[in-house]
């Protein structure tokens, strides 16, 4: 059972990707590997008004995701070696000494969080900046956000403060119970109608 979680305020996130870069810097990640990814969601449509004029509807917002340290983690269930495992405090970590690099956790995670390191032949991912947390500091991504759109904390406190919403269009159904709490961008309720989708797929996916 996860103890900690993230909060992402999609109504505040400007998509500057400082969190993504701070995470890469903190973890010294190679090109292509992103423990945190900022997904740009956008969609638009033209509508004909009663007067016969054309007007457009647009929706655009950003969603920053690391690993959600899910309460029912699909990656842990899938891993054949138990390298992907839950710590007693609920943090989901990869033991690189055990990992065989089969990439099955990558398939099983609905959020693209496990990141394969081709050079090392093993899986890596967000570890909640465990070392920082043990020192009483905030994770690098949270501390770096200029919009204060990210928060880290105890799950109970995050729910009390922000409510228990764990999804926003087009995230999949929260079947893994992600410890990610989201304040919805006001446009999100039109996103499905406007056929919005992630428009920076090439940027956020680890294609190796």
């Amino acid at each position: 059972m996860s103890t900690f979680g993230f909060f992402c305020d999609t109504s505040a996130c400007s998509g500057c990707k400082t969190c993504q870069v701070a995470c890469k810097d903190k973890n010294n990640l190679e090109p292509g590997i992103r423990f945190r990814r900022v997904y740009e969601v956008a969609g638009a449509n033209w509508n004909k008004t009663e007067e016969g004029a054309w007007e457009h509807d647009i929706v655009a917002y950003n969603l920053s995701i690391g690993c959600n340290h899910c309460e029912d983690p699909a990656c842990v269930k899938a891993c054949p070696t138990k390298a992907m495992h839950a710590e007693s405090d609920g943090m989901i970590l990869v033991d690189s000494k055990i990992c065989i690099g089969c990439r099955y956790c990558e398939w099983a995670c609905p959020y693209g969080s496990p990141q394969y390191n081709e050079q090392k032949g093993i899986m890596q991912k967000c570890d909640f900046c465990r070392d920082y947390i043990l020192e009483g500091k905030q994770p690098a991504c949270v501390a770096s956000c200029p919009m204060r759109a990210l928060e880290f904390g105890q799950i109970g406190q995050l729910i009390e403060k922000h409510g228990d919403n764990r999804t926003i269009y087009p995230m999949p159904d929260p079947i893994t119970k992600p410890a990610l709490f989201i304040r919805k961008h006001p446009g999100a309720r039109f996103a499905r109608k406007l056929n919005a989708s992630i428009i920076n797929r090439e940027e956020v996916r680890n294609e190796k």
Binding site: K77, P80, T81, K97, C99, I100, G101, C102, E118, I122
Partner: peptide, 16 residues
């Protein structure tokens, strides 16, 4: 990616 650890792949028959 790391076949040296292959024998460990039988460790999670319960769920994997």
């Amino acid at each position: 990616g790391n076949p040296a650890n292959a024998p460990r792949s039988l460790s999670n028959i319960g769920t994997s």
